[in-house]
Nucleic acid binder design. Structure first.
Lengths: 137, 137
DNA sequence: TATCGTTATATATTTTAAAATATAACGATA
DNA sequence: TATCGTTATATTTTAAAATATATAACGATA
């Protein structure tokens, strides 16, 4: 068969104008993104779990933390459970029954994780701001 | 009512051991993430659309590009359409009918976008590698 | 020992997203 | 003018994810 190359002809990059000019005027374009830790291909510590841990620490309860985030208890518990299994030692210590029916507290390891994630998030925020600046310059 | 503070007692960060030691031994933890451009809260240029554009440029067809990515034509067309509407000028020029039934070609603006995204991805990859290094040090 | 709200778990339901299917219009070419 | 594969679009079907509901176990406290 004959070779038709009309549509195979590729467009190539020639000039290098400002990227900003490609977008419609008036709309503000920014670079955004998401970060997470993964082990063996599995995400296990993104923005959701971090916030959940922070709220568990504040409320003393998985249930209360989930409600604050409008997350189902089931999902919250699964996040906690997955996280506990990935770490050398549990980061959330649950107590079923007892005063107020029970509750959950964080270990110091959880606090270290949270703190580390905060610092990482700050560096990422700086990266994103720089990229947005580059985009709009 | 009386104030019960047992569960409200918050765990606080005391020492600052290596984060690496928090994870089970043997599992390799790395920092990963995703980047995209957004305008007015709408993601409109992430990894998916970029790859789609690259493949449209190579195949000359939205349909063929979608098949290569195992993406439905509908989704591919919607990505292209959204992208075209966000830009000052269309980045994909479709032709319905004609030789081989039609096809699509990229504008030079599309090529600039692709090139920009490649460079941004490289910077992001470096950022992620550095974060992974910090995590494991 | 009865009460309480929480943890832990299973199951059912709803919602959402994705994929599959169908069909018309299109225009260069033979 | 008939053919072709693509674009463009609507509709249906399927799959996945999220949510809702239900229930038992738990243990400090009154």
């Amino acid at each position: 068969m004959g070779i038709k190359i009309k549509h195979a002809r590729k467009t190539e990059l020639l000039m290098n104008d400002s990227i900003k000019n490609l977008f419609k005027e008036g709309i503000q374009v920014k670079v955004n993104g998401s970060l997470w830790l993964q082990a063996g291909g599995i995400h296990f510590f993104g923005p959701g779990p971090v916030e959940l841990l922070e709220r568990i620490n504040e409320t003393g309860s998985i249930n209360a933390a989930a409600k604050e985030m409008k997350m189902s208890y089931k999902k919250a518990w699964e996040l906690v459970n997955t996280l506990n299994q990935q770490m050398k030692a549990p980061v959330v210590i649950p107590q079923t029954g007892g005063e107020k029916g029970g509750g959950s507290t964080l270990t110091s390891e959880a606090m270290q994780l949270i703190q580390y994630h905060r610092e990482m998030r700050q560096r990422f925020a700086a990266f994103l701001e720089n990229e947005t600046r580059l985009l709009n310059q």
